[in-house]
C-alpha cells in the first residue's frame, strides 16, 4: 500500500514538473513536431489495420445475432456503428496503442535515464521532465481525434467489406443502418475518451521510463510495466467515462 501511494505521489509530482511553460518555445515546437510524427503518424497504420479487422468481426457477430426476421434490415449497420464509435474505436485502439506507444515512450526515456542523457539535460538547467514529456503528451493528445476518426472509418469500411464478401448482408442494408439517426454526440463521446486515453498512455509510460534506475533489464521491466499499468488505468477510466458521458 505504501509503495502504491509513493508511486501515485511520484506520478503526480512528475506531472507537476511536466505541465509547466516550456523553457524554450522553439525547442518545444521542434520536439512537438517530432513526437507528432513518431507517436501520431506512425500509429495510424496499426490503428487502421486493427480497426478494419475489428469492424469486420463486429459485423459478423451482429449479423449472426440479429438475423431474425423480426429485426429491421438496417439493424446490423446501426448497431455496428454505435458499438464502434462508442467503444471499439477509442477503447480497443487505446489498448493497442498502449502497447505500441507506451513501450516506445518508456524504453526511450528509460534508455535516456540510464545513459545519463536526462542528467545531462538537468545539469544544463533544462527542466528535463517538461522538455521530454510535455511534447509527447501534447502530440499524442493532438493526434487523438485523428486516430479515433480514422479508426471509426476503417472499422466501418472493414465491416462493410467483410459483410458484403461473406454475404451476411447487402451493401445497401449496411450503409442504410450506418447512416440512420446519426448523433454527433457519439463522435464527441469517442473523441473525449480518446483524448483521456492518450493522456493516460503518454503520461503513465513517461513516468515509468523517466523514473527508471539501473540498467537495460530495468528499462525492459519499466517498458512492460508502462504497458500493463496504462492498460489498467485506461480500462478503469473507460468505466468512469462511460458512467459520466453516456
Amino acid at each position: 500500500m505504501k509503495k502504491f501511494i509513493n508511486t501515485v505521489g511520484g506520478y503526480f509530482m512528475l506531472l507537476g514538473k511536466v505541465l509547466r511553460r516550456p523553457d524554450n518555445g522553439r525547442a518545444f515546437r521542434r520536439q512537438l513536431v517530432y513526437e507528432m510524427k513518431v507517436l501520431g503518424i506512425e500509429s495510424l497504420p496499426i490503428a487502421c489495420i486493427i480497426s478494419a479487422f475489428v469492424g469486420a468481426a463486429v459485423v459478423i457477430q451482429f449479423a449472426a445475432s440479429l438475423s431474425n426476421p423480426i429485426y429491421p434490415t438496417w439493424i446490423t449497420g446501426y448497431t455496428t456503428r454505435k458499438a464502434i464509435m462508442l467503444e471499439f474505436a477509442p477503447t480497443m485502439i487505446g489498448l493497442v496503442l498502449a502497447g505500441k506507444v507506451g513501450s516506445r515512450i518508456a524504453s526511450e526515456l528509460g534508455t535516456m535515464r540510464i545513459t545519463e542523457q536526462i542528467d545531462a539535460l538537468n545539469i544544463m538547467g533544462v527542466n528535463s521532465a517538461n522538455y521530454l514529456i510535455l511534447p509527447k503528451i501534447t502530440a499524442f493528445m493532438l493526434f487523438s481525434p485523428v486516430i479515433v476518426t480514422l479508426s471509426v472509418f476503417s472499422a466501418l469500411a472493414g465491416g462493410w467489406l467483410f459483410g458484403m464478401m461473406s454475404g451476411a448482408m447487402s451493401s445497401y442494408e449496411f450503409l442504410d443502418g450506418v447512416q440512420l439517426e446519426f448523433d454527433s454526440y457519439d463522435m464527441f463521446y469517442g473523441m473525449a475518451k480518446g483524448l483521456v486515453y492518450n493522456f493516460i498512455i503518454a503520461s503513465v509510460s513517461s513516468f515509468r521510463g523517466y523514473t527508471v534506475t539501473g540498467g537495460a533489464l530495468e528499462v525492459g521491466q519499466a517498458s512492460t510495466r508502462a504497458v500493463v499499468e496504462s492498460c489498467i488505468v485506461l480500462i478503469a477510466a473507460n468505466l468512469a467515462l462511460t458512467s459520466i458521458l453516456i
Partner: peptide, 9 residues
Amino acid sequence: FQGGALFDS
C-alpha cells in the same frame, strides 16, 4: 559524462 551522454536523436 562518463559515456558522453550525447542525445541519440
